[in-house]
Simulated scan of single mutants.
Amino acid sequence: MIHGLITASLVFAGSPAAAVQAKVDCAKVKCLALTFDDGPGKTTPALLDVLKKERVKATFFLVGKRVAERPSVARRTLAEGHAIGNHTYTHPWLTRRLDDDIIRELQTTQEAIKDATGLTATMFRPPYGRTDDRVLYLANQYGLAQVMWTGTTLDWDLRDAKKIKAAVLRLAKRDGVLLMHDTVPQTVKAMPGIVKELKKRGYHLVTVPTLLGVKRLKSGTSYP
């Protein structure tokens, strides 16, 4: 089953994300980054509706093939101030692939995101979290920093809104990066309650670039 950072000045200078969250200083307030892999999918617009209504931002790692299928959703994601990263074109297990295959997966996704949104992605997340020094070296050739996570909800397996919400609340911590999937309907269903409870607990829900603050994601480096 499909699993599924960089400052505003590096990736989104002049973008909605930079404008909206520039005032959030995660060194002074309690921040948390919600990240979503594998989209854009059928349920992504509904998730974007929730995030827009709640006035929070997230980070989306996009599958190139799905960007090509739903370019308007990718454009909307960026336009509404969310951060975007590369999640390969067909979602393969990269450490099992030849160098040329890895390069093709990253390059074609870079092109798909650029064509759809005008953005040159500078971060990526390896499918299934499967990575090694070779993958990181090849990603560096495309100016990509690797973004992992501090906790995964396993929403793709749970498939239950209440359990997914409970997982998020259990994993939430200051400066955390949580992994979810916008292609899981139950995750989208759980999101209004998740956001409300996290806000109640004092969290500022921000993009990964905002979470890093003055730090810089460097190409070929893995975070967090």
Rank of each mutant, 00 (worst) to 15 (best):
G81Q: 08
G81I: 10
H82S: 07
H82Y: 11
A83C: 09
A83T: 10
G85C: 07
G85H: 10
G85P: 04
G85W: 00
G85L: 03
H87S: 05
H87A: 11
H87L: 13
H87R: 15
H87E: 06
T88L: 00
T88Q: 03
T88V: 05
T90W: 04
T90S: 12
T90D: 09
T90Q: 05
T90M: 00
P92I: 13
P92Y: 04
P92F: 02
W93D: 15
W93H: 10
W93I: 08
W93T: 15
W93P: 02
L94M: 13
T95G: 06
T95N: 06
R96W: 12
R97G: 02
R97D: 14
L98E: 15
L98H: 15
L98N: 05
D99P: 00
D99I: 05
D99V: 04
D99Q: 13
D100V: 13
D100W: 09
D100E: 10
D101N: 07
I102Y: 11
I102M: 06
R104K: 14
E105F: 03
L106G: 00
L106S: 10
L106T: 06
Q107A: 13
Q107K: 12
Q107H: 13
Q107N: 11
T108C: 07
T108L: 06
T109Q: 10
T109P: 01
E111L: 07
E111I: 14
E111G: 10
A112T: 05
A112E: 05
A112Q: 04
A112N: 14
I113R: 08
I113S: 00
I113T: 06
I113P: 00
K114N: 02
D115I: 15
D115C: 14
A116D: 10
A116I: 11
A116P: 14
T117I: 04
T117M: 12
G118E: 04
L119M: 11
L119V: 13
L119S: 14
T120W: 05
T120N: 03
T120M: 02
A121P: 11
A121N: 08
T122W: 04
T122Q: 15
T122V: 07
M123P: 06
M123V: 06
F124V: 06
F124C: 09
F124M: 15
R125F: 05
P126R: 02
P126F: 01
P126L: 01
P126W: 06
P126K: 07
P127Y: 03
P127N: 09
Y128H: 14
Y128E: 11
Y128K: 09
G129T: 08
G129W: 09
R130A: 02
R130S: 14
R130T: 15
R130V: 14
T131M: 04
T131S: 09
D132F: 04
D133Y: 07
D133F: 00
R134C: 10
V135K: 04
V135H: 01
L136D: 06
Y137G: 14
Y137K: 15
Y137R: 15
